[in-house]
Design a protein around this nucleic acid. Structure first.
Lengths: 385, 385
DNA sequence: GCGCTTTGTTCGATTTTCGGCGGAAGTTGG
DNA sequence: CCAACTTCCGCCGAAAATCGAACAAAGCGC
């Protein structure tokens, strides 16, 4: 029922996390006998999950044979569906990108059209990487709206017309599909990529809207209805006049989101439509745009200050379109957070820009798929089959 | 190293959680053979952790022997240290209160004096319950300030002079001591008591100050520095004039805490010093006090609305001194939360008053101690010793 | 009373794990 | 270059854990 500790799955987890690269490491970490570990590793090699590489450095005796994930026979995909784009990354089992692509694609076209496009791209990327379709073990998809994670159905998403309650995984046959909110997969990717040491992390996406992915105890916190992290509609003080598409006013998103900044620039006589336009203006050195971005940072910082007191994360990562001008955004955020949060909570807090950049969501979605496949339960199932 | 699944500890966990009351249940839940389960149960009975009661209902065959925690040989204590009081509850292993007491005690007297008092009370309660000192397996202590949970040392607590970095567990000999923030143990107690079905719960204590305990995935979220849940110093809009003891202004606690309400009542010519005075005035039907409590509820609701969007809990429990007038407080909180949070997050959200009342902290601290003792790792250690 | 069902124990069989041994494969020092 | 030493790894018998079949116990229904 429950998996054995030191089971094949646990052993593989240690290998994949990089905690152990040799049989000796595994024996030390699990507490099992060396012979038992050898047996486990043999089973994993047999199943094509692990491979041996050249011997490593000797520490005075026979050098240990290095172990690593066998990257040839499996493939995973991460899909980033945005309001107007689609990115797909094909990855091997250790998270390396084999091939990727990016298209304009309107999510409003509805699930059938969009998913057909994704499916086509998957085949193309598999072809480019020279792997057969059946090598594809799992696909992660990040979508711009709330999702019931267990079933992969969007839950009243505001900007995905036609997708409500659509069972996305059912569209794909013969492959496991995991669907999550885009900020969640971005948080996951960022955590596993650059901040795996942090137990508690917030990933804040500042684009057209504003959202937040939450890592608690190293795992995604999705909340009771899967709507956790929806910080775009938290109220900020002093902006009661700013109406929001959600029906309320003074929402963070309505005053500090990319769309809001663009609108205010337009009012100032600087035509801008989207977050990208704002970024362009800032990069062109426009001081009005710069000022507004910094001011947006302060407003976001005000909300984050509350969340820092509440959640006490170790790291806050700022991503999304506007993070391309992160110096200015971060300046505003840091200024406010460090002023308004408690010293105990901010003392070891670091606020940094995203390291994964434009591909954050696709990579994170791929990692979601890989981690699902590598979960001890699943591996034990495969090995004992 | 890692405990076996279906180990004695896991078996005991199932029994203590009430998930299994017979050997058959255990076999079904763990997937182990009946004979293996019998062996485990025998070991647990041998160690005095489990006992058999009368046979249960037959379902057409031989009636199963019921199993339950053996409540005689162990005792646990929960201690609630407040700014001006000390409550101690002595409990058996299944969480029933054997004896309890309450005193006035100034925490400012310093750790030695206060802990000596606690130790004395422990002996008294053990005497009353007729259990020897060595029956006491673990003690949980809730203190009014941040604590480094792993070491049991208060971390710059604002209202505990002389306690900073004091290693509380070292004061007690021969018994394990766990120290946590008071709101954390209250959240734990409330969750285990009345809302064990909820995965994500917030416990909000509204007393002199305002704090929040966070249960995520059924476990306490303490944050990176153990300061999570410190919502008393989140800024609320429109009260820039209200200075707070933390040095900032417009903190939630400075405008909606019991002390703040009392001060405003005093300004209105109604002498009040503490949250208790406010409660008394409300209970006496004073409309000014009632209005201020309701207004405080709105302000707290404003902050909670943000946290609901961010954290998406299933339940918010309101406790602390002011919850004794919870109708008025809750009205204000509900009004604001349901207006300012997203529908998806509030749809299944319930906001309710505490069920454990005045003893919440002592009971929660006791549960902290019991759960520590009953943790699979610890039980396996005991059984295999 | 007698068959049926479910529970719990006993005990030999099976599977899993351990740990010692020896060979493999390197380093170090003379 | 060789001998001594260290570490790694597979092999295999011993030990331990677990299983499962058989049987006894205990109630129900007819």
């Amino acid at each position: 029922m429950t998996p054995q500790p030191g089971s094949a799955g646990d052993v593989l987890t240690l290998i994949s996390a990089g905690s152990a690269t040799t049989r000796s490491d595994l024996a030390r970490l699990t507490g099992l006998a060396r012979s038992t570990i050898s047996q486990r590793v043999d089973a994993l090699i047999e199943r094509g999950l692990v491979e041996e590489t050249e011997s490593g450095e000797s520490t005075g005796g026979r050098p240990p044979r290095q172990l690593r994930l066998h990257t040839e026979d499996h493939a995973f995909a991460g899909v980033d569906l945005g309001a107007t784009h689609c990115r797909v990354a094909l990855m091997d089992i250790s998270g390396n990108v084999l091939a990727e692509c990016e298209d304009s694609l309107l999510i409003g076209e509805g699930p059938e059209k969009v998913l057909a496009h994704v499916d086509e791209r998957l085949d193309q990327l598999l072809g480019r990487a020279g792997r057969p379709r059946k090598a594809l073990r799992a696909v992660g998809i990040g979508v711009p709206g709330p999702v019931e994670f267990a079933t992969g159905r969007p839950n009243n998403p505001p900007i995905m017309p036609g997708w409500n309650d659509y069972p996305i995984p059912d569209y794909f046959e013969g492959v496991e599909v995991l669907v999550d909110n885009d900020v969640n997969v971005m948080a996951l990717g960022e955590h596993r990529g650059a901040f795996s040491g942090a137990k508690h992390l917030l990933f804040v996406k500042v684009g057209t809207g504003i959202g937040c992915g939450i890592m608690a105890e190293g795992k995604l916190h999705r909340g009771a209805q899967g709507s956790a992290g929806d910080i775009g509609h938290i109220r900020v003080s002093g902006h009661e006049d700013a109406g929001c598409r959600c029906g309320n006013s003074a929402c963070l998103e309505a005053v500090a989101g990319g769309a809001a900044i663009a609108r205010r620039l337009t009012e100032l006589g600087l035509p801008a439509e989207s977050g990208a336009d704002v970024v362009a203006l800032v990069q062109a050195g426009n001081t009005q745009a710069l000022r507004l971005v910094r001011e947006a940072g302060r407003l976001i910082g005000e909300v984050l200050a509350s969340l820092v007191n509440f959640f006490n994360p170790e790291v806050i990562v700022i991503g999304g379109a506007l993070s391309r001008v992160h110096e200015h955004l971060l300046a505003g955020i840091r200024e406010t957070v460090y002023r308004r949060s408690l010293p105990l909570a901010t003392h070891h807090l670091s606020i940094t820009p995203s390291r994964t950049g434009i591909n954050a969501a696709a990579l994170g979605a791929g990692i979601l798929a890989i981690e699902h496949y590598l979960s001890p339960d699943n591996i034990n199932r495969i090995v004992n089959a």
